[in-house]
Design a protein around this nucleic acid. Structure first.
Lengths: 209, 209, 209, 209
DNA sequence: GTGTAACCGAGACGGTACGTCCTGTCTTAGG
DNA sequence: CCTAAGACAGGACGTACCGTCTCGGTTACAC
């Protein structure tokens, strides 16, 4: 497969990778420290040791910048672990409990809400947010092939294996079940409603009979 | 001896209801016009013909102000209609389809995302957002009694009647089913994923078997 | 005499005289320190402990600001002394020599050139610059009456007294003589041409026969 | 004393005359269009179709660049015509009137003030400005020999011929008279004071009897 | 011929300052 | 004592240029 022909550039200094990385690094750390609302381009530029114009040259808005940081796994890098004990219900409860525990913790408190605010600005962030929690994006792509083979299985992977194992009917709407659970997580994050053991059990029961 | 006799002493001007209403009105229209992010106190004050201090005297933040506007039903005033044909599945599909149609429309496009951004700031907005769509808040209160008697039934009402009618098992987690569906709506709003007929059917199928 | 009717102001905080003075003070000191070209609004605001908007609210440009500082005698406050020995020629030579000595000095070096640059921007500065050196503005006003009575006579005053004393013909163009001499000072400031004793003598000779 | 041997330059492209001319051309037209204050190196480079570095390689500052453009007669190219009718006074009045007319015109309005601002930055510009108007620099040099023979006589030339013709005394300070008149022009340009016929007459009268 | 060194256009870089907008506080005059 | 008006210190916005630093590409002299 031949690579795409290079853009017709006539001279000019090339983009500094060091600056790009420093900016994304700074964006991630400022985001974690202050949240999306109180994130400032000036603060990021200062933290990255970069001129403001270098940011505006490559990103059109705060939202685009955060989106790229999220896409590069600088925020929300890890998926949540889901076990595979053979009992789908208890596995989902473990996973959902872990997610709610993270939300209840000091770090997760604002982080998810900030990501939600960012997603309200920028579509890419919304898509990625969903993918990171559920383990599957809207449209399958090269990344999904890679993630399907990764050591750490996602909720969606677990649901698919449940179909194979006969725990769920063959035509069960796997992607939608994951979507509903992630949606519930987001809704509870927005309303600051924690999830105790009973709530988790009821949510899981609602989607897996 | 003070010159002012007690009886002529002014007790102080009372809060102007006209100003309060104008501010909430202006908040709602500015919110609809510009979204939560680009809402400004100065803009609201100017649109309401009011001094900034009058806003700061009674509300502590932009979030509080929007929350009160939402709570007074100036935004998101109507619940979404859900029919009762005796077939829960098709009734839920009708309702969910109507919600997604609203989101796809020009008005709903940004409105829900702005409300989500507002909810990320302010817990009350998140709770109210959930209640407005699903028809039930987290904790039952006086309002629920009123809404139960209102002419327009909510999704939660419909689910409860399904339990009574035997369409759902007696111990079905009604509130959580509504929560999951509302969460899915919010997640799709964030990721700009529309809901076609098949997607709606699958989401409903996932929660009502 | 009744005062002019007050502007129809309805409420609003009144302009802070402290801020106004601090700004003019800072303008003068920054001007002296850096010159007109390298004067910055941000620098003035910082030095005055004032927000930038407070400057932009009352002055439209750097030129206007410097103009007001000059008009308030914060720069170029003193006129140059001219003696009255009865010999006009030697008196003018004393005065002109003093002006050139000032220019040759460390302070005067850049100050006049900066004022010239400022005057190229702003008409008021040009007028005031002329008045400060020559002792007379273009159009006589209330200020001139005051200055005519001031203890320190200006070049123009000295020329007028020369007319009275018969040193100059009755119809001698007094204002124009002063103008020519001030113009020569400015021209030499621009071309960094100092004025030695002979040059001073020749300039004076050219205007007083 | 032998000068240091020239560096052994081996190879290397020679300076592009086309680029040099395009830069000076662009400098002149941008200067005329925007004035000295709003002249930018980037604007000149773009207008000349040249990289910024090509400018910085050969000129140290905006002032140097403008100075060279002025020295090459790209600005202020023509001297002002002075007739020789045998009547010095009326000849000077013609000349001075023409200069003031130029200043009053749309082109001259800002041009001289911009040159003055440039001169405040750069000594060469000040010297050249004086020479261009009066027809003589401070120190006689090779250029003066050339100008003395040029077809168009300068004010200084006219004054010198007046000495020869006996209109002025032998020891009249010719250079200083020109200097005073040029200075008055600059002063009036700075203070936006036009010169009507009477003012011109009085200025001339002040220096020639 | 062929290096090679200095030039060229282009344009990204770290910065500084611009002039605007908005924040939350304060100070007026007036009901 | 509330209200409309609006000035205040502060801070961030997004833009324009500064002067420097690469880039790939082009001469033109020295070998």
């Amino acid at each position: 497969m031949t690579p795409a022909p290079p853009e017709t550039r006539q001279g000019g200094r090339v983009r500094s990778e060091a600056a790009r990385l420093a900016i994304l690094e700074a964006t991630a750390s400022e985001f974690a420290a202050r949240g999306y609302e109180h994130l400032t381009i000036e603060g990021i530029a200062a933290a990255a040791g970069v001129g403001k114009q270098t940011i505006y040259r490559w990103w059109r808005s705060k939202g685009d910048l955060v989106a790229e940081a999220v896409l590069e796994d600088r925020l929300l890098g890890e998926r949540f672990h889901i076990p595979d004990t053979g009992d789908l219900r208890s596995d989902l409860e473990s996973w959902l409990g872990a997610v709610f525990d993270m939300l209840a913790g000091p770090q997760g408190e604002g982080l998810l809400r900030s990501l939600i605010a960012a997603a309200a600005d920028n579509a890419d962030i919304g898509l990625r947010l969903r993918e990171r929690i559920a383990g599957e994006g809207v449209a399958g792509g090269a990344d999904d092939a890679a993630s399907a083979e990764s050591a750490e299985p996602s909720v969606t992977d677990r649901l698919r294996s449940a179909v194979t194992a006969g725990e769920l009917p063959t035509r069960a709407p796997v992607a939608e079940i994951a979507e509903l659970l992630v949606g519930a997580v987001i809704l509870r994050a927005l309303s600051r409603t924690g999830g105790d053991r009973e709530a988790v059990a009821r949510l899981v029961a609602a989607v897996v009979d």
